[in-house]
Write a protein that binds this DNA or RNA. Structure first.
Lengths: 351, 351
DNA sequence: CTGAAAGCGCTTACAG
DNA sequence: CTGAAAGCGCTTACAG
């Protein structure tokens, strides 16, 4: 009978090192209580065998469930954008919950800072092993991040980033480039003499995100030496009447406008205006595959939507934490989503 | 001391049914050797408890490794297209090999039917638990599929499909719609009086794939009541000189051509011609993000590339087999990839 | 047709 | 600082 020796595994390591498997386990997980000499010996053997722990056995034996906390905006009647990341998060959860991952989701209401702060309080009081969040409010996010760093809890940002913060990973759009592409699409749609209107409809129009997009947008026209083609309009109210008043004023002032680029998902508000005013010759481009926008894409009022795979952002966010916590796999510090162009013709296959 | 009862698991089921866990296991896996009465009783309890087997424990105990066989073309000097699915396949493998999945890849040389047949022989002689393949040769693929069906081996097709065949899943592009979008992009680029040249560079230009794309392409112009804008050119040789001769002839005949749509990845051959002949005003659109094409996209000779996430096709193909075989999860019978539009501006973020 | 027992490769108290 | 033993929730021979 041939002696059957497993050439890997804690048992074999223990056999070779002349110690018990408990000691091997201590070394593998860097737990204290092992003499330096023993530790070095075991580490050498681990290296020699190129030992990879069996994740299956490890998770089964430990019974540890990693608790992930998620902090994202709630979808509202104005925008179901956050449904998509949510779907991705839930898809990831379904896939890995059998491997001992639990996911708890906390929502906040996007304009209301207080709901964000409240959710953060809840996240702080329960002890999570990892956090996935959209850092919608700068100071509050930085504060929470500091707390997590202190507790050694990895944090992943999705959708938007805060520069120079120590997170495990950022998953989101390359904003400058997407603004640049937006400009190109505008250019493609208009005639030589027409101008392009760059619209920002937001109460916080000076946020980092918007500045990046605007930079990219203007860079394109600068490269073409035709920055004068570009008109900028800031609308700081988000109700339909205010938006329309401002648009009307701008059109009176600039009848040569041939295309409009809206810097966020509120492009549907402009679409509604164009349809009501019967201005089908104006080309319209904006962000995000939310259902309001899909409607106008279908009718042709919106020509292009630029999108950044919000569902996959949620999915990848959870999977990054899982890889980091449970599998000890390396995680990209920055993962930029592609810049997708969605049109009437390919919208049925977009996810 | 409170009695700690696990309210799920084979143990609890066995306890409730008054049988051993071995018998429970037999019922769970539909193995024979259980009386009808016992079986029904256990099944009722399983349902009542909504029992979900612990995949971790199951895979660990069984030690079974699922062997997946992959059959795809080799990348060649003409096209590194198949590097992308390969990357996806390897990424999936890395992610799930720790869960007892092994992947073996067989390559064939795309024009050579004999290399396909030879690979199929190898696949048949080794016993795989699942197959991922690109059914590049119709009859041979159907034959192999029959063999797999006989052995009860699930098969997943990627990149192209064979209609009416019983596979586990098809993962690939929606061809008609991508042709339709191609037409729209052409239309967008040209002036009112210009015409569009539809080019097929292939030795098997009548294959199902091409017919579908062509249908979609023409449908677009038909919808605009301007089918006469569309000129079709079949080039049945794939060497550069033959291609250029045909293009030259066509341009002489139709000087009003403003845009060219190439129905596959050989758009780089047309790009080379346009650059050499110094025809920058001709708009060029084609398929696939292969490195040759990327070069011309960067220089602007190619305006748009239509792509179908080849890497993700490979990734999803392997994951589908894993989900089906190891996790008993349901798998989509048809999974259409999105129709991606890649331009100079977003190419850096495309995967 | 059914069950007792060993084992998958780890982790975790607990004892020393 | 170290080890023996039980156990995670299954599967797999083997015996009856």
């Amino acid at each position: 009978m041939t002696e059957k020796r497993n050439l890997s595994g804690v048992k074999e390591i223990a056999r070779r090192a002349n110690v018990s498997i408990a000691t091997v386990d201590r070394v593998i997980h860097n737990r204290p209580g092992v003499s330096v000499k023993t530790k070095l010996k075991i580490e050498a053997i681990i290296k020699e065998l190129n030992y990879q722990p069996n994740v299956l056995a490890s998770r089964l034996a430990s019974g540890k469930v990693f608790k992930l906390g998620v902090l994202i905006p709630k979808s509202s009647v104005y925008s179901d954008f956050w449904d998509a990341p949510l779907r991705g998060i839930q898809r990831a959860e379904a896939e890995i919950k059998q491997y001992g991952i639990s996911v708890e989701i906390f929502f906040f209401d996007l304009p209301e800072k207080s709901t964000f702060t409240k959710a953060v309080q809840l996240l702080k009081s329960s002890d999570f092993d990892g956090i996935l969040m959209s850092p919608s409010f700068l100071d509050e996010s930085v504060d929470f991040l500091r707390h997590c760093q202190h507790q050694n809890i990895p944090v992943v940002f999705i959708d938007s980033n805060i520069e120079d913060q120590k997170t495990l990973s950022y998953i989101g759009p390359p904003l400058f480039q997407s603004g640049f592409l937006g400009a190109k699409l505008c250019q493609l749609c208009i005639s030589y003499s027409s101008k392009v209107l760059l619209v920002n409809i937001s109460k916080q129009s000076k946020s980092y995100n918007y500045l990046q997009i605007e930079k990219g947008f203007k860079q394109y026209f600068e490269n073409m030496s035709s920055l004068q083609k570009c008109i900028k309009l800031d609308i700081n109210e988000i109700d339909q009447p205010s938006i329309e008043v401002q648009l009307k004023k701008t059109f009176l002032q600039h009848p040569e406008i041939g295309a409009i680029f809206v810097m966020n998902s509120r492009v549907f508000a402009v679409a509604a205006y164009l349809e009501r005013q019967n201005l089908p010759h104006i080309q319209l481009i904006g962000y995000d595959f939310i259902s309001e926008n899909q409607r106008y894409l279908k009718t042709g009022t919106i020509n292009f939507l630029i999108c950044h795979k919000p569902e996959e952002q949620g999915y990848k966010g959870i999977m990054s934490l899982y890889h980091h916590l449970a599998l000890n796999l390396p995680v990209d510090m920055e993962y930029y989503m592609p810049i997708d162009i969605v049109t009437q013709e390919n919208m049925d296959f977009y996810r």
